[in-house]
Design a protein around this nucleic acid. Structure first.
Lengths: 170, 170
DNA sequence: ATTTAATTGACAGTATACTCACAATATGGC
DNA sequence: GCCATATTGTGAGTATACTGTCAATTAAAT
């Protein structure tokens, strides 16, 4: 028992804090995604952007950022990289000279198709250690929490607002 | 009913994916921390480092990175910033000329003491939208999941290993 | 119509978070 | 003692993720 200093009780306060657990799970989730999808040169964020452009062709950067709860500045860089990889193209909008509309290229649609199984595998692995019932519970609680805390984040999800102007008008 | 294009069913696959939910909660958690602690010039990561140095004075950067599951390179920058703010000092180790030991300054101990209530408030707000019973369930499931997925992350938590050499030998 | 306000994309700046690589140092096998 | 190996801190490079600000452009107010 050579314990000359007190036990670091405060570390427990870190390990059990929700903020720490969320950071850690995010770390793990990204690592699993990268590992499963290393054959494709796509990050989780680039994948999310690609899916959204696929489901909403002709969306602009600002609306895209609202749909996936992304910072607009960050998204600019993401778009640049996707464009550099020839997965998307930017076309200037006819009615609004400020806006650049986003579309998948053939290569972009292709990689999206091919990467799907790997993404699904990664998503599954994130929850795999839990019992099936617990997975459902966790997903349900997380979904609620993200929704109820939406306004707390700096870049709230604005799926409805962003899509209002798509598929109906413009 | 002017729906000329199919409903974007695939977006649901994004919104309900665990990876998306984890990223979103991390975003929200950081935003709440920053908001509650804006009176103090400390980020969540800097706070975690400070707590750990406080509970383990004389820890070195590599061990610190293992204790809070941090990338070592990233931690270098964090340490630099904490040092620039005069919250910590680095002292070269006598036995190993490569190692620099980390200690809190008086100012560092002070800010840690003062920020605690704000951190607690932020942590509480993250789960506040849930019913108390659900908060417990979520924390329990998250703790399990982070622990069981530990090896999946690029920088696994090595609390035990890292602390072995502290407080006993050394 | 002209001023005002809001929007869009872009840029600079800061802070994680990771990769790989590299010099200095320490340690192990022999 | 010497040499291969490992460790420590550090640096460069990439990618989020946010803060601002800014010019160009559009929309709104009067």
């Amino acid at each position: 028992m050579p314990s000359s200093k007190p036990t670091p009780v405060t570390m427990d306060a870190v390990y059990t804090a929700p903020g720490y657990l969320f950071r850690r799970m995010q770390q793990i989730a990204v690592a699993l995604f990268i590992e499963e999808c290393k054959a494709f040169d796509l990050t989780p964020v680039q994948y999310a952007a690609l899916v959204t452009i696929s489901t909403h062709p002709g969306i602009d950067a600002t609306r895209l950022s609202a749909v996936i709860a992304f910072d607009r500045s960050t998204l600019g860089n993401v778009i640049e990289r996707l464009q550099a990889k020839d997965y998307i193209v930017r076309k200037p909008a006819a009615e609004d000279k400020r806006v650049k509309l986003l579309y998948l290229t053939k290569a972009g649609a292709g990689v999206l198709n091919e990467i799907m199984p790997s993404v699904d595998k990664a998503q599954a692995r994130m929850l795999q250690p839990l019992k099936p019932a617990d997975r459902k519970t966790l997903l349900s609680l997380l979904t609620q929490l993200v929704d109820l805390n939406n306004e707390a984040s700096r870049v709230p999800l604005r799926a409805e607002d962003a899509l209002e102007h798509l598929g109906r008008s413009g």
